[in-house]
Amino acid sequence: MRTPSGNKVYGMAAEYPSAAALYEAAKRVRDAGFKRWDVHSPFPIHGMDDAMGLGKSWLSAPVLIGGIVGFFTAITLTFGPSWFIYPLVVHGKPYDWRTVPAFFPIMFELTVLFAAFTCFFSMLIMNGLPRWHHPVFNWNRFSRVTNDAFFLVIEARDPRFTESEARQLLEETGGQHLTVIHED
């Protein structure tokens, strides 16, 4: 979607006076059936996930897989050398599976490490990060989002998006300073 002057449109944005107003607006936008939209606030708002109709994040699946991979990596790295490749008697302890208590810390650490890395990088990928710029920063008022302002942006790529419908919805929910945000 483009403006008459040829700029690509990112979405329709509105500012709200309070977290409560933003919360109510989010419920209306959710009920109107929009899928590609987001809210921006200086602090997390409890209950916003439900108000936006967001389900459970699927981040936990890659984290679980990362943790399991880390666990088996640790098993390979500890038992491989100590039991098969280079068995060595340490402290008079056996070097077969019975020495497993010595390896639990490594299994624990690698499980946590792999899970944490998977969590961090999956989060970046899911959020499309890192990136240099985001279209919402084209709007001057948006710089107050880390301070005292509450915003709601409906993206143009939402299949239900039309400029008039989005504008009407945001106005009805009490949005102020409605604006069309350009892509670049």
Binding site: H91, G92, P101, A102, F104, P105
Partner: peptide, 12 residues
């Protein structure tokens, strides 16, 4: 529980 066990097991 494991930390307690492992330290004792290791030091022997």
């Amino acid at each position: 529980g494991f930390s307690q066990y492992m330290l004792i097991w290791y030091a022997n």
